[in-house]
């Protein structure tokens, strides 16, 4: 018989980092292969499962940054924060670090869209020699919504960081305005060869990509990560299918040349 892919495993919660009232990062013990951009199904018996991006990878540890928005995550925040969590995964393709090595890289992320790229940004922030410059444009709705503020403070000296909120007065390093407003001002030496990653709400992604193309980025140098409802993570339940791809198997990371052809 095949392995029962639906059987979750227990992961010990090592630390809970409270970003906002409704957004926590759960730091979990995990040994095994995993890439930034992949996701796990957080599996709470009797409540359900929710697909959550890996927001950080360290030896023996993974981070899952979770927003409290539904039945599963409510139960998680109420009763599991100091215990153990059932997980399945990792699923999905994740980001391929080699796609960005040796290039100028711009990462544009909105809200919880920072989660899937955080591991990648951390990697290049710690290995700046691997890229020819890294710019992170991270946008949040309001100062209260900012996730990973400590990371931004750390990264501010290592990478070109543009932290922005749509409205309100942000903390240090923070600007006001939409992420798309910052694209024309990007200091890129050779836009036609630079790489970009865009992750966030659908509207933000659409306009950010338009901005990048207008700034001279080539379609094949842009990658996106898609959020969909993934019940199974293994190509069965059908909820994440778009055209002939299954986001859980073929994504969630897509090159834009493919991503632009996907019509929900």
């Amino acid at each position: 018989m095949p392995r029962n892919e639906y059987q979750p495993f227990l992961a010990t919660v090592k630390e809970v980092i409270r970003h906002t009232d409704i957004e926590y990062t759960f730091r979990l013990a995990y040994e095994g292969p995993v890439k930034p951009g992949q996701f796990f199904e957080v599996s709470i018996p009797k409540f359900g499962e929710a697909p959550i991006s890996v927001s950080g990878i360290e030896p023996g540890l993974i981070d899952l940054t979770i927003r409290r928005v539904g039945r599963v995550t409510n139960e998680l925040f109420e009763h599991y924060a100091d215990r153990k969590l059932f997980l399945r995964g990792p699923y999905g393709n994740g980001f391929n670090v080699d796609d960005y090595r040796g290039r100028e890289l711009v990462v544009i992320a909105g809200g919880t869209g920072v989660s899937p790229v955080r591991g990648l940004v951390e990697h290049f922030a710690n290995h700046p020699e691997e890229v020819r410059g890294l710019t992170l444009v991270a946008g949040f709705k309001s100062p209260q919504d900012i996730l990973f503020y400590n990371d931004f403070s750390r990264w501010a000296t290592k990478i070109n960081l543009i932290l922005t909120v749509d409205a309100g007065e942000g903390p240090a390093h923070c600007q006001v305005g939409l992420v798309t407003e910052h694209i024309p001002q990007l200091k890129i030496q050779d836009a036609s060869n630079a790489a970009a990653i865009v992750v966030g709400p659908p509207v933000m992604m659409r306009f950010a990509i338009q901005g990048l193309l207008a700034a001279g980025f080539a379609e094949h140098n842009i990658w996106i990560s898609q959020e969909r409802k993934m019940c199974c993570g293994i190509g069965k339940c059908g909820h994440c299918r778009i055209n002939d791809v299954y986001v859980c198997l073929n994504g969630p990371v897509f090159n834009y040349t493919q991503g632009k052809t996907l019509v929900d």
């Binding site: 392995r3 892919e5 859980c248 198997l249």
Partner: peptide, 12 residues
């Protein structure tokens, strides 16, 4: 096709 060959085999 879906349950045995698209991704991992479905146990059930």
């Amino acid at each position: 096709e879906i349950y045995l060959r698209n991704g991992a085999e479905d146990y059930y």
